[in-house]
């Protein structure tokens, strides 16, 4: 008999504050496992961003810094430019990255910063109570779009991966999903590729992880996985949008 799956040492013993069924926990685990497997836990500095994931520094077994809303890519830039030998990543939600932090994420990609961005897209502001995000789908109800998002009033949801893949100095951009074990295996490979990209000094790497927010969506955890698959993936297609050669 042999243990084929156990908790990675990249995660601390602290239980997360996330709601039951929230896929943030999966995203944390993937980052932690990849850093452990690459032997980088002791060499990594993470940037936590505002939103549910602000407390990620309590759960990830690496040095971390808390960033103001949207600013994580700028903070990561300052860190990476000071200690380029360290692995530096940001962990950002869609309210953070796709709304208040659009300037910082675009320009981190624009400079080709050699950092890794873990972008958790659950199409809503979770921590503040389920408000509309730039990623909220057309018709999706939120506390600030009580009748559902009206594209003619609020525009169509932003596709950040597609946008960032167009930035000339971006190196690696992939969108994956956390709604099913098969997809979670692929997501881990993407996270691994992103950090490998940084280790190989290839520049800006970003993985967008489609995630659920059962509480914000008003669905139970299992229905949330189904909702993600039925609604998010058609609008946010999975795949590699930008890759350096041989990654």
């Amino acid at each position: 008999m042999s243990v084929i799956f156990s908790k990675t040492s990249g995660l601390t013993e602290t239980a997360t504050h996330y709601c039951p069924g929230c896929t943030h926990g999966i995203a944390h685990r993937l980052v932690a496992e990849v850093l452990e497997e690459l032997g980088l836990l002791g060499e990594t500095i993470g940037c936590a961003s505002v939103g549910c994931s602000i407390l990620s520094y309590n759960y990830l077994n690496v040095d971390m810094i808390e960033c103001s809303h949207g600013r994580a890519p700028a903070v990561a830039t300052g860190i990476k430019r000071t200690v380029p030998e360290k692995t530096v990543f940001t962990y950002q939600g869609d309210g953070d990255l796709a709304s208040i932090g659009t300037a910082e994420i675009v320009h981190a990609a624009h400079r080709g910063e050699n950092i890794t961005v873990i972008f958790v897209n659950n199409a809503i502001y979770g921590m503040t109570g389920g408000q509309m995000a730039p990623t909220t789908l057309a018709g999706q109800k939120t506390t600030t779009a009580p009748e559902g998002r009206q594209p003619e009033f609020s525009g169509l949801p932003l596709k950040m991966s597609e946008m960032l893949a167009q930035v000339p100095s971006a190196s690696y951009v992939e969108r994956v999903s956390l709604h099913h074990p098969k997809y979670i295996r692929k997501a881990k490979k993407a996270v691994l590729r992103a950090f490998t990209c940084q280790m190989e000094h290839r520049g800006f790497s970003l993985v967008e992880l489609l995630s659920t927010c059962p509480t914000g969506w008003g669905l139970d955890p299992i229905d949330s996985l189904e909702w993600l698959e039925a609604n998010m993936i058609p609008y946010y297609p999975l795949g590699v949008f930008r890759a350096p050669e041989e990654v």
Partner: peptide, 21 residues
């Protein structure tokens, strides 16, 4: 069948899986 599906989807890392041959 030790497929790890439960461990992969669990957001709270509650599973440890042993494989029996």
């Amino acid at each position: 069948i030790a497929c790890l599906s439960c461990a992969l989807i669990c957001p709270d890392v509650v599973f440890t899986i042993e494989r029996v041959v």
